[in-house]
Deep mutational scan, measured.
Amino acid sequence: TLKVHYKYTVVMKTQPGLPYSQVRDMVSKKLELRLEHTKLSYRPRDSNELVPLSEDSMKDAWGQVKNYCLTLWCE
């Protein structure tokens, strides 16, 4: 499951381990945003700071799954 905080919160079913490009595509379609305006980030467990997502950091983000849910933020 993927939970995304935006102006409102959406929850989507997804497969764990998807690459950033696929996750961003899913989120942009769900929120009806243009792909270039979809910026995603996540919060590591040991931090209060949001970390921007990229293809490289997506593996780390999937490591933050809690209760089968990855929580992301969209700007």
Rank of each mutant, 00 (worst) to 15 (best):
G17P: 05
G63K: 15
V11Q: 10
L31E: 01
E49V: 14
E36M: 02
R34W: 00
Q22L: 07
D56S: 12
R43C: 06
C69Q: 14
D60C: 08
E36Y: 05
W73R: 03
L53D: 02
Q15W: 11
L72I: 09
G63Y: 07
L72W: 02
S21W: 13
G63M: 12
K3Q: 13
V65W: 03
R43H: 05
L40I: 04
K30G: 03
Y8C: 09
L33C: 10
Q15C: 09
L33P: 03
R43V: 10
D56C: 02
S57C: 12
P19N: 12
A61Q: 08
L31V: 00
K29W: 06
G17V: 00
L31N: 08
D56T: 11
P16D: 10
P52T: 11
K3Y: 12
V11F: 11
L50H: 06
V4I: 14
M58N: 00
Y20E: 01
Q22H: 03
P16W: 12
Y6M: 09
H5E: 07
R45T: 11
Q64C: 12
M58W: 01
Q64P: 03
K59L: 10
T9G: 00
V65T: 14
L40V: 00
G63C: 12
C69D: 05
K30T: 05
K13P: 15
Q22Y: 09
D56I: 07
S47H: 09
L31S: 04
M26G: 02
L35R: 15
K29E: 08
S54Y: 06
C74R: 05
Y42R: 10
T9N: 07
S57K: 13
K3C: 02
Q22C: 08
L31F: 06
L72M: 06
D25C: 07
E55Q: 07
K13E: 14
E32Q: 13
Y42G: 08
L18A: 14
H5W: 01
R43S: 03
G17I: 08
P19L: 08
H5A: 05
D25Q: 10
S54V: 03
L72E: 06
E49P: 00
E36G: 03
P44E: 08
P19M: 04
L33F: 01
E49Q: 12
S47P: 11
Y42F: 08
Q15E: 14
N48R: 11
L31T: 00
V27T: 01
V27G: 07
V65H: 13
D56H: 13
V51L: 11
T38G: 05
T9H: 02
H5Y: 02
A61K: 04
K29Q: 13
Y8L: 02
L18Q: 03
D25E: 15
K13G: 06
V65E: 12
Y8F: 07
Y20D: 07
L35S: 15
V65D: 05
K13N: 09
T71D: 15
V10C: 09
S57N: 13
Q64E: 13
E32C: 15
S47Q: 11
K13R: 10
S54N: 15
E49N: 09
K3R: 11
C69K: 00
R34P: 15
M26E: 07
Q22N: 06
L18M: 10
V65N: 15
V11C: 12
K13H: 10
N48I: 10
S21I: 06
S21L: 08
P52Y: 05
K66C: 06
W62E: 01
V23Y: 09
K39W: 06
S57W: 02
R43N: 08
K13T: 09
S21A: 14
G17C: 03
K66N: 15
V11S: 11
K3V: 14
S57L: 08
M26C: 00
A61M: 00
D25N: 12
D60W: 04
Y68I: 01
T9I: 02
S57E: 09
C74Y: 05
R43G: 01
K30W: 01
R45L: 14
Y42N: 03
R45D: 11
Y68T: 15
P44T: 14
V27S: 01
W73A: 06
R43T: 04
P44R: 14
K29F: 06
S47R: 11
Q15I: 10
T38Y: 00
K66P: 05
E32S: 13
Y42M: 02
K66A: 11
K39S: 10
S28D: 09
S21D: 12
L2M: 07
V11Y: 11
T14L: 10
L18W: 04
A61T: 06
S57F: 04
K30L: 01
Y8V: 05
Q64F: 06
T14Y: 14
N67Q: 09
E49L: 10
L2E: 06
Y20I: 04
V27W: 03
T9S: 02
T71Y: 06
K39E: 00
Y68P: 08
K66S: 13
M12I: 15
E49A: 11
L35P: 15
L53H: 10
T14K: 05
Q64N: 12
T1L: 12
P52I: 05
M58K: 07
N67M: 00
W62R: 05
D25M: 14
V23C: 06
Q64V: 04
P44I: 05
D25P: 07
P52V: 12
E49H: 08
K66M: 01
W73L: 00
C69T: 15
C74N: 04
E49K: 13
Q15H: 13
S21M: 10
S57Q: 00
L72P: 05
V65M: 15
V27P: 02
Q15K: 14
N48G: 12
K59T: 10
S28E: 03
